[in-house]
Each structure stands twice: as structure tokens, then as C-alpha cells.
Simulated assay, not measured.
Amino acid sequence: MTSIQKKVLLFLFLFLYSFPSSSEALPSVTADAVILIDADTGEILYERASMEPRPPASTTKIVTAILGYEMGDPEEETIVSQRAGTTGEASIHLFPGEKVTLGDLLTGALIRSGNDACVAIAEHLAGSEEFFTLWMTTKARLLGARSSQFYNPHGLPHKKHHSSAYDLAVIAYYAIQNPSFAATVKQKYGHLDHREGWPREIRSTNRLLWNYPYADGIKTGTTRAAGACLVASATKEDRHLIAVVLHSDDRVGDTMRLFEYGFALEAGK
């Protein structure tokens, strides 16, 4: 290689690396499937594998809550069935025969991710989990979430139960328009004031609420198959964003980086 060729190569190297590549400007995200949308316009600001069907874990409960708020009265009282009271994993510790209002069930499902609360909601509104899940899938499809299929109201593993990052963003965009839903998911602590059992104060599973000042919801989810998931909302001044991360190694950090990226983009428009 001649000295002139070496100088040309050195010039090209310095020229190319004096500017940041477009990939360097993108958020560093560990999740397998990601989407970030402008919640006012619906514009997709960033995505990766967002249409891929994946297990959604407890982010499923967003759909359960939508139906609960739209089809029931929070003051309605129901009696917890044996099936609901013995549903495993995440729980608000309902017991069979306990009387509880639909409003407390919705709070318990969204804030503490109570699987037992979700079964009680389904049975109260539809008579059975099985029939309720038909409503869930139908509602999701009507909203434009066409990859989603629900076989339970809580998101515990089922081989045919799936959604996608895109679908969950569409569902969250719709859900957050409901004032009761929005008021519930932004709470760090919730109160179950009309139940007979314990606990009456519950703490949100969404650590983003403590770690990001603009966060105002929405729902976590975790199973072995789904990994750590988060559907999140954040509002800064007059800008509102929704982010979804599925199977993440750092769901809070991923989501914060997505929001910071999105708000910087929006500010530059």
C-alpha cells in the first residue's frame, strides 16, 4: 500500500468516525420486543420485533381492567368463589366466601397484580373465566390488537395465550383514556377499603413509579416464559408517551431510556 493510499484511508476513517452513527442515537434496550409510541398521535417513535406474538404475563390484566371498568359498577359487591380464592402466584389474598367490591378487585388487579382478583372479576362480570376470555380477545381485536389471544384473565402461562408489544401499546393507549383506569395505575399505593380480609393497603409492583418522575402507569408482568415485561406511560409537559418492553433484562432501565429518547425526539420537532 502506497503512502498516498494510506493517507486516503486515514482521511476516510477520520471523516466517518467524526460523526455519531444513527444507531448511537438510538436507546440501548435489553428487551426482546419493544415499542415506543406518541400517545397523542399514535406515531411509532421506536420499535423492535413489536409485532412478534409473545406471552404477555400480567400485562394481560390491562384488558381485564378495561372490561371491568366498562361493563361493571365499582360499587357492586361480589362473593369470592373457591376457584378465585385459591388462584395461585401473585395475590391480594382473597379467601373463598369473602365479600368484596368490584372496585377493590380492579385496584388489586392493577396495583398488586392479584391473579385471584382477576378471576373474581371475570366470574362476576361473565359468570366464568372461559366466557370472559372470549370478551377479552374480542375487545382487543376491536381495538386493533390483532395478534392477541387470551385464555385467562391474569396472564399465567398458557401455550395459546399471547399478545405483542404493538398490541399492548394499542391496548394501553385505549385504556389510559379511561379516567378511572388512569387514576388507579398511577398510584404507588392502593387501598382496598371495602373488603373483609387483609391486606387493605397494597403496594404497586411498578417500580418505574419510584424511579422516573414523569411515569404515570401502567402495568408490570413477569413469568418464566414471558420474562420481565412492562407496559408504561409517561407524561412530560404536554407530551405523552407509551412504551412496552417484553422479556427484558432491565425493564425499568429500558423503559426510562425509551422515554428519554422519545421526549428528546418530541422536543426537537
Rank of each mutant, 00 (worst) to 15 (best):
M1K: 14
F15I: 06
L16M: 13
F19E: 10
S21M: 12
S23Q: 11
E24F: 15
A25M: 14
S28E: 11
T30G: 11
A39I: 03
T41F: 13
G42W: 07
E43C: 03
L45S: 04
Y46Q: 00
T59E: 04
T59H: 04
L67N: 06
Y69K: 02
D73K: 09
E75A: 15
E76A: 11
E77G: 00
Q82I: 13
I92S: 04
I92Q: 05
L94V: 07
F95L: 10
P96D: 15
G97D: 11
E98N: 08
K99S: 10
L102K: 03
T107V: 15
T107C: 08
G108E: 08
I111N: 06
S113H: 06
G114L: 08
D116L: 13
A122C: 14
A126M: 05
G127L: 07
E129H: 04
E129N: 09
F132L: 09
T137I: 12
K139S: 09
R141D: 12
R141G: 02
L142A: 13
L143D: 06
L143M: 14
R146E: 13
F150V: 01
L156F: 11
K159M: 10
S163K: 06
A165Q: 04
Y166L: 10
D167Q: 07
A169Q: 04
Y173T: 08
Y174D: 06
Y174F: 13
I176N: 04
A182S: 15
K186W: 05
Q187M: 13
K188N: 12
K188L: 11
Y189T: 11
G190M: 07
H191Y: 15
L192H: 13
D193C: 11
H194G: 05
R200E: 08
I202T: 08
R207P: 03
W210M: 14
W210L: 14
W210E: 15
Y212M: 13
Y212V: 07
D216T: 09
G217T: 04
G221N: 02
T223N: 12
L230G: 01
A234G: 10
A234N: 03
T235W: 08
E237N: 14
A243V: 01
V244A: 09
V245E: 01
R251E: 08
R251K: 13
D254Y: 05
F259E: 01
E260G: 03
G262I: 00
A267Q: 10
